[in-house]
Simulated assay, not measured.
Amino acid sequence: MLNKQDFFDALEAARKPRHGGGHPFSRMWAQGALSREQLGRYAVQHYYYIAPIPQQFAALYARLPDLDARQHLLENLLGEEMPDTPEKRHPDLLINFAEACGLTRDDVVNADLRDEILPTTRAMRAWIWELSTIRHLAESAAGIMVALEGQLPTLYPAYVKAMRKMGFSEEDMEFFHVHIEGDEEHAHIGLELTDRYATTEALQERSIAAVRASASLRWSMLDGIQAALVVPKAA
C-alpha cells in the first residue's frame, strides 16, 4: 500500500489531467470570451447536475459508520440546504446567477421537461448518485470531495475575476463565492476520509480511479456544454 502522503499525492495527481480549469470552455470563461447568455445556458446544465446534491449527500451520510465523518457531511449538507436562510440554498444561488444572465427561473428549473439537458450532463449527475449510494466509501469520498469539490477553489476565482469585468455584482456571483470559501476544507477532509476507508491496496487503486472518472466526466460535461453553446452549428 501507499503511505498516506504518497496516497494523497496520487489522488491529487489523478485529478490534474482533467482539471476543469484547463478545459477550453473554462479558459474562454476566464478570458471573458463568453456572453451572459452563454453563461446562463451553462447555469441551466450545472443546475441539473447539482440540484439533487442534498439528497445525494443525505444518502451518503446514512452510509458513513463514523461520527466525525457524518458530522462533516452533515455540515456540508446543511451548507447546501441552508435551513435558516432557504433563499441561500446553493441551487437557488445558481438560479439567481442565471437570472442575472437574463434567464428566468422556469428556464432553469424546467429545462429537463423541454429536453434541454445534455447527455453528458445527465451522465455527470448519474455518476454522483452512483458514488453516493453504491460505490465503496473510499471511492465516494475520493470521487466527490477530492475530485470535484477539490477543483472549485482554484477554478472559480478565474471565473469571478472575468465576471466582475462583465459587470456582474458580488450578489450575482454568490454561488461561486460560497464554493471558493468552503470547498478547500471539504477537499482536505475528503483526502482524510479516503485514506481512512481505503484500507487495502485494491481500495487505494479504486479510489484513484474514482478521482480520474469524476474529473473525466466533469470534463466531458464541459465538452458537451461547449459543443452546444460555443461551437457554431452547421447551417
Rank of each mutant, 00 (worst) to 15 (best):
residue 122 R to Q: 11
residue 130 E to M: 03
residue 111 A to F: 13
residue 130 E to L: 09
residue 152 L to C: 08
residue 119 P to S: 09
residue 174 E to G: 00
residue 165 K to A: 15
residue 158 A to Q: 10
residue 134 I to C: 03
residue 110 N to A: 04
residue 152 L to H: 10
residue 138 A to I: 01
residue 200 T to D: 03
residue 150 G to W: 15
residue 106 D to Q: 12
residue 119 P to L: 03
residue 111 A to I: 04
residue 194 T to W: 09
residue 175 F to C: 08
residue 121 T to W: 07
residue 119 P to K: 01
residue 199 T to G: 11
residue 119 P to R: 11
residue 159 Y to K: 13
residue 132 S to W: 09
residue 178 V to S: 04
residue 194 T to S: 12
residue 183 D to N: 10
residue 183 D to W: 12
residue 180 I to R: 05
residue 167 G to I: 15
residue 107 D to R: 02
residue 113 L to V: 04
residue 108 V to P: 01
residue 123 A to D: 12
residue 160 V to E: 06
residue 184 E to K: 14
residue 146 V to E: 11
residue 184 E to W: 08
residue 177 H to I: 03
residue 140 S to D: 04
residue 161 K to W: 01
residue 116 E to Y: 05
residue 131 L to Y: 13
residue 183 D to H: 08
residue 148 L to H: 12
residue 145 M to C: 10
residue 104 T to M: 13
residue 167 G to F: 06
residue 121 T to Y: 07
residue 136 H to P: 05
residue 168 F to N: 07
residue 133 T to D: 05
residue 115 D to K: 14
residue 139 E to T: 01
residue 120 T to E: 12
residue 144 I to R: 13
residue 163 M to P: 02
residue 128 I to W: 14
residue 154 T to S: 12
residue 128 I to H: 13
residue 148 L to V: 12
residue 195 D to A: 12
residue 173 M to Y: 06
residue 190 G to Q: 10
residue 158 A to H: 13
residue 136 H to D: 13
residue 142 A to Q: 06
residue 139 E to H: 01
residue 117 I to H: 02
residue 128 I to F: 15
residue 138 A to P: 00
residue 179 H to P: 04
residue 166 M to Q: 15
residue 169 S to C: 11
residue 113 L to R: 15
residue 158 A to I: 00
residue 155 L to T: 03
residue 122 R to N: 03
residue 158 A to C: 02
residue 113 L to Y: 11
residue 118 L to W: 10
residue 197 Y to A: 04
residue 144 I to W: 11
residue 163 M to R: 05
residue 144 I to E: 07
residue 164 R to P: 01
residue 171 E to F: 10
residue 154 T to I: 04
residue 191 L to T: 03
residue 168 F to H: 02
residue 112 D to E: 14
residue 149 E to L: 09
residue 114 R to C: 01
residue 172 D to C: 04
residue 138 A to C: 12
residue 111 A to V: 06
residue 169 S to A: 10
residue 153 P to R: 06
residue 161 K to M: 09
residue 142 A to Y: 10
residue 115 D to G: 04
residue 151 Q to C: 10
residue 132 S to A: 15
residue 166 M to L: 14
residue 125 R to Y: 00
residue 196 R to P: 05
residue 123 A to K: 15
residue 170 E to R: 10
residue 157 P to V: 12
residue 130 E to T: 08
residue 156 Y to M: 13
residue 176 F to H: 08
residue 126 A to H: 04
residue 170 E to Q: 12
residue 105 R to Y: 00
residue 154 T to W: 10
residue 161 K to D: 05
residue 113 L to P: 00
residue 107 D to E: 01
residue 179 H to C: 04
residue 174 E to L: 14
residue 124 M to I: 06
residue 180 I to N: 05
residue 134 I to R: 14
residue 157 P to H: 11
residue 196 R to V: 14
residue 124 M to E: 11
residue 140 S to F: 06
residue 154 T to A: 14
residue 124 M to L: 14
residue 172 D to N: 11
residue 122 R to P: 00
residue 134 I to K: 13
residue 159 Y to P: 00
residue 138 A to W: 00
residue 187 A to G: 11
residue 166 M to W: 02
residue 159 Y to E: 05
residue 153 P to N: 04
residue 192 E to A: 15
residue 107 D to M: 03
residue 127 W to M: 11
residue 124 M to K: 13
residue 109 V to D: 00
residue 117 I to R: 00
residue 129 W to N: 07
residue 169 S to M: 06
residue 196 R to C: 12
residue 105 R to N: 03
residue 121 T to D: 02
residue 148 L to W: 15
residue 153 P to S: 01
residue 134 I to G: 02
residue 189 I to Y: 10
residue 118 L to F: 08
